[in-house]
Amino acid sequence: MSCDYFEKKKVKTEDIVTQELETIDWNAVDEYPSFSVCDSVSEKLARKYCFETTVLNHVNNYLSKQSIVVSEDVEDTISIKLAIDKLGNISVLDIKTKPETREIIPEIDTLLRGSISSLPKIFAAIKRRQHVNTEFVLPVIVSIK
């Protein structure tokens, strides 16, 4: 499972003065968002990878435990736009999926939101010793045959 699909996004704010503290360029952050399972990882990119794989594995495990019944095959890469605030709270901003997937699995949005809300505690990203808000896109491959 590759985590190279994460897109780099910047949080938008109206106030230019506070933008520097409240938004994040994923390349310039001092510490990526993290989970306690990543505490033993000290190298920055390895820690980012640990965070990304933890999120992906959690979502995949959550979905695999659901009893999704489909009448036809589903093959889709769903993009979930997520935000993590400076307190470590995660929220779903947007879910992009093919219309056919929504038709075949009408509960897909609810299932994905459930998987995100059940994530373990997240430690917010840090820039210049300040916790900062972050946004990113999580690609979730749904393949049911």
Rank of each mutant, 00 (worst) to 15 (best):
V142R: 06
V55I: 15
K127P: 00
L138A: 06
H58I: 02
I68Y: 06
K10Y: 01
T134K: 01
K86T: 00
N27R: 05
S71Q: 03
I108L: 08
R102S: 14
R128S: 13
F35H: 06
I105R: 09
S34L: 07
N89W: 00
E31Y: 09
I90M: 10
I16W: 07
V29D: 01
Y62A: 06
E43R: 03
S91L: 02
Y49A: 08
T13R: 09
A125D: 03
R113C: 12
V41F: 08
D15C: 14
V41I: 15
Q19C: 10
K121P: 09
V41A: 06
L87Q: 15
S117V: 08
N61H: 13
S79N: 11
E100G: 01
R102F: 09
A46N: 13
S117F: 11
S40D: 15
K44D: 10
N27M: 05
T110Q: 14
D94M: 09
E52H: 09
L87T: 14
A28W: 00
I95Y: 06
K81C: 04
I95G: 03
L93P: 01
E107R: 09
I68L: 10
P33W: 10
N89C: 02
I108H: 05
D73C: 01
I95S: 10
D109N: 14
K9Q: 11
P106F: 03
I68S: 06
Y62C: 04
S42T: 15
G88A: 11
D30T: 04
K121R: 14
F35V: 08
V132D: 01
L111Q: 13
K8R: 12
P99S: 11
I95W: 12
Q130I: 02
S115W: 12
D4W: 04
C50V: 12
I80N: 02
T101N: 07
H58E: 14
A28I: 01
I126T: 14
C50Y: 04
E52L: 13
E135D: 06
L138N: 08
E52C: 13
L93V: 10
V17H: 11
T134R: 00
I108D: 00
R129V: 12
S36H: 05
K9P: 00
S143G: 05
L82T: 12
D4C: 12
E20S: 13
F51I: 02
L119R: 10
L111W: 05
L82R: 02
